[in-house]
């Protein structure tokens, strides 16, 4: 298919991407003393939503109350601003490379709907898992492993190990 060349022609060399990501993560640690993250932004959104919809319930629940403080709006966290930056940066890069297109990317052998259902299930699982492990692949695994944190390495190995383990069951979904 011709768009294969179109796609890969414009992607960066993965090692170049890795070195640049490493330098960005290094700059993040150097400037702010903390790593990058992603699931934290989703968490803040959920907390803000629940706080808006059912403030009393949010106050009582032990988990929400951890992230609700009376002087700061739940969305006023570092990760939410970082997520806004990620959206903007990705949009910019997509625009430059001409990949901006509203579509669902799925294996031609499966229907679009099946792909979206699995995306939803994957998201839910990731939501629960990221809260239990206090971080997702970019927060706990990447930033954690970069500072050689024991928890970071365990989470990284658990994520990639279980993904490899379950890959066989989802092979029809992808290949």
């Amino acid at each position: 298919m011709d768009n294969k060349n179109d796609h890969s022609k414009t992607y960066f060399n993965p090692y170049f991407g890795g070195v640049m990501l490493g330098l960005i993560l290094l700059a993040t640690f150097y400037i702010t003393g903390r790593g990058l993250g992603a699931s934290g932004a989703a968490k803040s959104t959920v907390v803000a939503a629940v706080d808006r919809v059912a403030p009393k319930h949010a106050e009582e629940s032990t988990y929400y109350s951890k992230f609700i403080s009376d002087d700061l709006h739940p969305m006023n966290t570092w990760l939410v601003f970082e997520a806004i930056g990620v959206l903007a940066g990705a949009f910019l890069s997509g625009a430059i490379a001409g990949r901006l297109k509203i579509k669902t990317e799925h294996n031609p052998k499966i229907t679009r709907r099946r792909r979206l259902v699995f995306a939803l299930i994957g998201g839910i699982l990731f939501g629960v898992g990221s809260q239990i492990a206090r971080g997702c692949t970019s927060g706990a695994a990447l930033s954690g492993a970069a500072v050689l944190s024991l928890g970071g390495f365990i989470t990284m190995m658990a994520i990639f190990g279980s993904a490899y383990g379950f890959a066989y069951f989802f092979r029809k979904l992808w290949t």
């Binding site: 997509g94 990317e105 699995f118 995306a119 299930i121 998201g123 990221s130």
Partner: peptide, 28 residues
């Protein structure tokens, strides 16, 4: 948490960071 996330990764195809990036360029 890692095991659950691994399952979510291989079934959903994304992780929280990359899904944001996919969403930014229009991936439903």
């Amino acid at each position: 948490g890692g095991l659950i996330m691994g399952l979510g990764f291989v079934s959903g195809g994304y992780c929280p960071g990359t899904s944001l990036i996919g969403a930014a360029i229009g991936r439903i």
